[in-house]
Design a protein around this nucleic acid. Structure first.
Lengths: 334, 334
DNA sequence: CTGAAAGCGCTAACAT
DNA sequence: ATGTTAGCGCTTTCAG
């Protein structure tokens, strides 16, 4: 692979001059520019970004940590981030933190070693341990779809508790009184706890009686979790007419399971999802859901790290508004 | 951020010695090791991979070029690649080539500048222009879900034409005689042309009459393309009893559109998809489809580049076997 | 067992 | 307008 030296030799100039035309710094005649550009062309020379990075302390790379949650949701989020990052001339290293144990620390170490300019940390609790490591490296950090109550890290997210509250209230407004929830992982501090809380608060603020067993949880937020949870829920509470699901995938799994159980949706049981992933439009029935503008959020998070990298250290956290997208999975009871 | 110098100073040794214990090269006493390790610990030192890369000519990074085709399919493929790459101690830079024009050349330039150790090129035709650029850089290249007839580049893929042939034959074996195809983008040399060819060959080898208008194509392979194509197809050929779809997403779109049009699937019209994305299991009805083991293919492609990087320049192309996954979207007619 | 010094490819003063 | 030189943080001879 050709280096700057080769170009310099071919163009009969010094490497400094080559560097100058490369970076468009002033200080060379039109003739030398041509000579250099021709040499570059002929040699197929591409500047070595690694060498540049060593000097400039910029790699034009940002690191992304995402759990392997719901593949569809994540992929929309990632695409928003990736697009934005590329538009700004950087690239993205994606790290899926599958088993949420040591893996994350390893990836952090990797990203720091790679000298990424910024890190976006998604959908998981930012442990003290993680924060210290990043803090120490001095790499700008943004939280996406998660937040830290005690650490000074800017975040981009929606208000999950409020969204879940609204979803439940929506069911109530449609006249439903027997409402269950399939809640994903209830111990998940990000997508679990707040959504369950919002659900309970909506019921109690409307004085709707409620039993603990009307919230069914499972390991995750996937189709299969939704399907299983729904079966459990309907076995224990066959009189339920509406279900609040903690994710669209769960809602879809529930619809599928309902189909197998001979339960018509929404005729017999209504359901509202969470996330507004693309497929909601074309599911049968189309899914009413809480819209979380993930692609947009990814974009904003990316812009935030980029801004921090460019010197705007202080970024305000932003809470995105959620929205109820009415489609056809909820039956009006009144 | 601490450098090797800081560590050396703190441990009262030279940077050469620090480097030695870092890389576990022999030539230091147990005492110095301890001193160095303690200094590293205290300073939170992480070796600078950029500086290392400059010397070693290895960045432990591989670049991936994927079109923003079908998000679900791609995400499964990417996850297979990413897992494998990480297992081998490298990381992945993902580049989605949206508008298939200049963008690809830009990304190539980017990846070369970043000195990636290898490149995986996915699902698109490898233009001469691309090849030359990569060839010149000397970076190992593997093709995934695509191939080059004239260029010496190893590839990982299934036989699309044969798979489509089998899908169509499967419909015929179930007793269908009026079979249409919704073909995605017919000009796509990778996922378009071969699948249409396989379809035609199956029909003609079973002497089933066929009209050009029974193949409906659109821009892409998405839900919406499937929905639109199906509507066109049924308008022109209301007597069709089976449809071969060029992707699962299209098949799903078709099912959805059928629902709106009052066409029961599979009672009135059967459908077979292509790709076996996760959602096929839980669609209504569950989708019979051609399984293309994308995650596995991604894994193998990743292993291939990694092997090439480690010196095994000559890699054999591999054709993965496809498989028909029988679910419930095809009705038996005989 | 350990240190000094060269150099990876490039940029940025500093000279001329 | 152009060349020379000193590093960026690290690995790797080569001395000792």
């Amino acid at each position: 692979m050709a280096t700057i030296k080769d170009v310099a030799r071919a163009a009969n100039v010094s490497i400094a001059t080559v560097s100058r035309v490369l970076n468009n710094k002033s200080g060379f005649s039109e003739d030398t520019r041509k000579a250099v550009e021709q040499a570059i062309e002929e040699l197929g020379y591409v500047p070595n970004g690694v060498a540049r990075g060593l000097i400039s302390k910029r790699t034009n790379t940002i690191g992304l940590l995402v759990p392997a949650l719901s593949s569809m949701l994540v992929s929309e989020m990632v695409s928003g981030i990736e697009r934005t990052v590329h538009e700004q001339g950087s690239s993205l290293i994606v790290c899926h933190t599958e088993s949420k144990g040591k893996k994350t620390m390893q990836y952090l170490q990797l990203l720091i070693a790679k000298q990424v300019d910024g890190i976006i940390f998604t959908s998981e609790v930012l442990l003290q341990e993680y924060y210290q490591m990043i803090e120490r490296s001095g790499i700008p950090l943004v939280l996406l779809s998660t937040e830290s109550l005690n650490l000074p890290v800017p975040s981009v997210k929606v208000n999950d508790r409020l969204a879940s509250f609204h979803a439940t209230e929506y069911m109530i407004r449609q006249g439903h009184k027997k409402i269950g929830m399939i809640s994903g992982n209830r111990n998940d501090m990000i997508a679990g706890v707040p959504r369950v809380e919002g659900f309970r608060m909506a019921l109690s603020s409307h004085q709707i009686p409620f039993e603990e067993s009307m919230i069914v949880s499972h390991k995750g937020f996937s189709y299969i979790d939704g399907a299983k949870s729904f079966r459990t829920l309907m076995t224990d509470h066959p009189d339920i007419t509406a279900v609040v699901a903690a994710s669209d995938e769960m809602a879809l799994g529930m619809i599928s399971e309902g189909y197998k159980m001979g339960i018509q949706i929404p005729e017999q049981v209504s359901v509202i999802g969470y996330d507004n992933i693309q497929i909601c439009n074309v599911s049968i029935p189309p899914l009413t859901t809480i819209s979380q503008p993930v692609a947009k959020m990814g974009e904003v998070a990316a812009k935030m790290v980029l801004d921090m990298i460019h010197g705007d250290e202080k970024q305000e956290s932003v809470v995105f508004p959620h929205e109820i997208i009415e489609r056809q999975s909820v039956k009006k009871m009144n």
